[in-house]
């Protein structure tokens, strides 16, 4: 049995009195212990929604309307408030996009770290502090002891994200969900933070769900990739295979749009159009208005995910 198994997950938001719109439209996902999965898609594809749904933290008025999130055979969506709190931040932790706003501005780093630890462990203040300093050293924060008494605004963006990572690692979780952990950072810091996350995941045998819109980042860190578009998974498979031989036209478009794949002096490729809002999805495959291979079947029916790709006219992959 896989460690984490998301089955047919739907998240819905009310529209008007009766109607609902779906932000996730049936997502499946499997993750083994220590495995690293990249979830890639444009803004609004439902990536972050997926992360929050896994922890059963969809904010009202949204709700999980269908599906299961099995973690070690336990459905997280059915757990009591108390039980799920014992899993959040303890066995599954999360790293957010912007470290400027994820740390509470009026509490010291130490307070926030010790609080996390004490929420899940019976531990004395002194031991908690020792463990926190140890973790801060692990994420390569210089003079960790004095940083414990610092406020978030006294640290740089990169350091703050390191603190956030240290907090995520504090309770030795089995799974870390990183929601665009480097997007808000300086380009020079991004690579550092990414390799730090990779190193820590490998050393501690932690599974990782890396949510990002940057295929380049995912390629370096993850073993498998899931491409999302308009609330659905459109392609899934081993990282290497998807990067070298994408089968869904959308994936291929994303890869072509990467600057490193464009020739010198050439214009960068751009997928025509933009992703439709979830309130106005086209009939059939949500990607068909932007797809050069779309036919009548694509305009009427939603292609199911078969053999790792949800497309009626997939590109020829390396294997096929």
């Amino acid at each position: 049995m896989a460690m984490l198994e998301v089955q047919d997950l739907h998240v819905a938001f009310p529209r008007g009195k009766r109607d609902e719109v779906e932000a996730l439209r049936g997502v499946n996902l499997q993750l083994e212990k220590g495995e690293r999965l990249g979830v890639v898609g444009e803004s609004g594809a439902g990536k972050s929604m997926l992360a929050f749904a896994i922890l059963n933290l969809i904010a009202a008025p949204g709700r999980v309307s269908q599906g299961r999130v099995m973690f070690h055979g336990q459905d997280l969506l059915k757990l009591s408030d108390r039980k799920i709190r014992g899993i959040r931040g303890n066995r599954i932790s999360m790293i957010f996009q912007d470290p400027m706003v994820t740390l509470n501005p009026v509490l010291t780093i130490g307070t926030q770290m010790i609080e996390t630890l004490k929420a899940h462990r019976r531990i004395s203040d002194r031991d908690a502090r020792k463990l926190c300093i140890e973790r801060l050293k692990q994420v390569a924060i210089p003079s960790a002891e004095s940083r414990m008494d610092a406020y978030p605004h006294e640290l740089s963006g990169g350091l703050r994200q390191r603190v956030v990572i240290a907090i995520a690692l504090l309770t030795d979780p089995e799974l870390i969900i990183a929601d665009e952990p480097t997007t808000a950072l300086d380009v020079t810091i991004q690579a550092e933070i990414m390799s730090l996350i990779l190193k820590l995941c490998r050393e501690n045998d932690v599974a990782l769900i890396l949510i990002t819109h940057d295929l380049g980042v995912v390629a370096e860190v993850t073993e498998r990739i899931m491409i999302m578009y308009a609330g659905l998974c459109v392609e899934e498979g081993p990282t290497k295979q998807i990067i070298t031989a994408p089968r869904h036209p959308y994936t291929s478009g994303l890869l072509k749009a990467l600057p490193q794949n464009a020739g010198r002096g050439q214009r960068l490729y751009q997928i025509p159009g933009s992703m439709p809002p979830i309130t106005a999805l086209p009939r059939g495959c949500a990607y068909h208005p932007r797809c050069e291979f779309a036919d009548n079947g694509c305009r009427t029916r939603i292609p199911p995910l078969q053999g790792g790709v949800a497309c009626f006219n997939p590109l020829k992959g390396a294997s096929s």
Binding site: L57, I84, G86, G89, M94, F96, T102, E115, A119, I167
Partner: peptide, 26 residues
């Protein structure tokens, strides 16, 4: 609506602690 509240919920803190310990000081 700020993310530090989301972060506190993700950490698994009970609502009471988030209210009094995280939101009130702000």
């Amino acid at each position: 609506k700020k993310e530090y509240v989301d972060a506190a919920r993700v950490i698994g803190l009970p609502a009471r602690r988030i209210m009094w310990g995280h939101i009130l000081p702000n």
